[in-house]
Design a protein around this nucleic acid. Sequence first.
RNA 1: GGAGGGGUACCCAAGUGGCCAAAGGGAGCAGACUGUAAAUCUGCCGGCGUAAGCCUUCGGAGGUUCAAAUCCUCCCCCCUCCA
Length: 377
Amino acid sequence: MHPGQFQITHTDGQARRGELFTAHGPIQTPAFMPVGTQASVKSLSPHDLTDIGAEIILGNTYHLYLRPGHELVARLGGLHTFSSWDLPILTDSGGYQVFSLSALRKLTSEGVEFRSHIDGSKHWFTPEKVMDIQVKLGSDIMMVLDECVSYTADWNYTRDSVSLTTDWARRCLQASPPDSGSQLLFGIVQGGFFSDLRTRSAEEITPLPFSGFAVGGLSVGEPKEIMLDILAHTVPLLPGHKPRYLMGVGTPLDLVDGISHGVDMFDCVLPTRNARNGTLYTSQGKINIKRQEFRADDTALDPACSCYTCRTFSRAYLRHLYTARELLAYRLNTIHNLAYYLELMRRARQAIAAGTFADLHREIQGVFKGAQDLKEE
RNA sequence: GGAGGGGUACCCAAGUGGCCAAAGGGAGCAGACUGUAAAUCUGCCGGCGUAAGCCUUCGGAGGUUCAAAUCCUCCCCCCUCCA
């Protein structure tokens, strides 16, 4: 099995269950990839991650370039050795920072000039540079440099942005051809919130020899229905035999929705960030562990969960740790939220293999959508 | 006994005639977070009321004033120094 090979073993409707091979081993799909921007999934050790069954994590090109520097990481043996993580790593290109740090950058057709969020110094990112950085980091899956456009971008702006992203995708391929090493390179379809531009972007990106294709630019503040509409429109435009990656999404329900449309890979900061902010995902829905109601609750966080946190501690203790700002709170909460996400993916894979994915989809809709509707009424 | 400083909302603390139901913090309560500038941010936080508004609060009691947390008198309590 060579890196880049993708085998789909089962399908259930549009949902697929598969396996993607990388230089650091296989990834079972559908997969959720915890985000470890700065070569660390915040508050967790690699052991914590393997313990809950993480098979791949993310790193970020922009952040690691700035600190500690890709040259240094390369000298120290690459990202895997540097961070003692032996399993696959996907590095995002910095395309998201074009969006999230829009106040600190200038975009030209040639590339992006960032003013460092750390010290204000100027840094020039081109597709070629971003490839060079990711090659030196040694990630298993590299992402092309793209422009993640905001929800407010109009058609004309988004049209030009699609052209830019396509041009950059070609340049990334040129800088790092598919057969040049064991690192995979994924293309990214953009097109904002205009179906015709999504189509155009897919038509331009998907013929290129990438190992997989991502849908970018979603969950940037748009209403959920719009996100789902664009997703439903875009995923079928991606080649069926290659992995499909929905970038930056999402909630547990988003993941299941995505899988139902044929998405294979997801990443999102939500489970880790929310864990640090007290919002925890359980089989009974989303709970805020800070709430008064858990003050004396001696039950497990989620009785249906078998993670270390749920096996060992009570809600009352977790609330206490959070309230007292104890560092352990961040780790225990993060372990749980990621365990929940990874278990959800495991169940999705099993359900697809068993042909019962629709049941799981309905169950998750009931847990999260139901709770949301109740709250809104 | 003498000299000085101080008592403000659950806590700390600003305010020294009207713009004060009273700055800031903290605590408390609730919410947000989607390819991480995030262990961050937002809202509420005397009582009643949906609101306009009304009522009760700045140690206590009196007083001055159109108006007092703020000025005056007396009293109570706390802290520091001196004897």
